[in-house]
Amino acid sequence: MIKLADVAKSYGDVHALGPVDLDLPRGGITALVGPNGAGKSTMLTIIGRLLGADAGTVHVAGMDVTTAKSRQLAKTLAILRQENHFVARLTVRQLVSLGRFPHSQGRLTTECVAAVDRALEFLDLTALQARYLDELSGGQRQRAYVAMVLAQDTEYALLDEPLNNLDMQHAVAMMAQLRRAADELDKTVVLVIHDINFAAAYADRIVAMTNGRIRYVGSPREVMTPDVLSDVFDTPVEVIDHPTHPLAVYYRLS
């Protein structure tokens, strides 16, 4: 499980996060939602040990992320940041293969090759695997990054806006695949997501944040109410009941 205790972070004078406490159980999909600047990405990046917290502790699968061995952590936890720009000219396959680095230190075993094949297959990239990243569309590149995280084959996967740049078809496919990863491969997925309706449709838990604080934690049905959403997003939100999941409607002010 993921356990945060009294975690806080400021950038200079700007207060970004906390102090927050959060316990996320193993398994399932957790969606972090909230307005811009709520601290979602900061919290995710701290859990993924890419950013140090000013105070508090973070444990993932019993390991303290600031003191545990980076190589050991890399086999348990994978994180994908929102902005990824690589100067290196790598092919999709080469990039995804680098996800196997924690397991093989660069010398791919047959198991690694199989994991890379699976990740490529999973994200519909098999046909594009020999292409260079700089020749792909934004959405294809985004899928390649997620494939790299999947190839890492960790129990926990943290993804910051994995739906970035994806069109409708691929956004739905991506969420369905993450759902499959959680259900079939028993992964714990935590993602920052902007589209609250995707969170409602696919997540097991929604964590709503504003101003660096956690405001609500609950199942989609619990969080997807007009009162909660209007409060969190500071804009009027209606919720319509759809047979499979609640649907937020917020496009017009009147």
Partner: peptide, 21 residues
């Protein structure tokens, strides 16, 4: 050191993510 340098070439975040010092 080549593989490590290739990983480092993707930046500190990706490198740390895959457990590279």
């Amino acid at each position: 050191l080549a593989h490590r340098l290739t990983v480092a070439g993707l930046g500190p975040d990706v490198a740390t993510n895959v457990g590279l010092n």
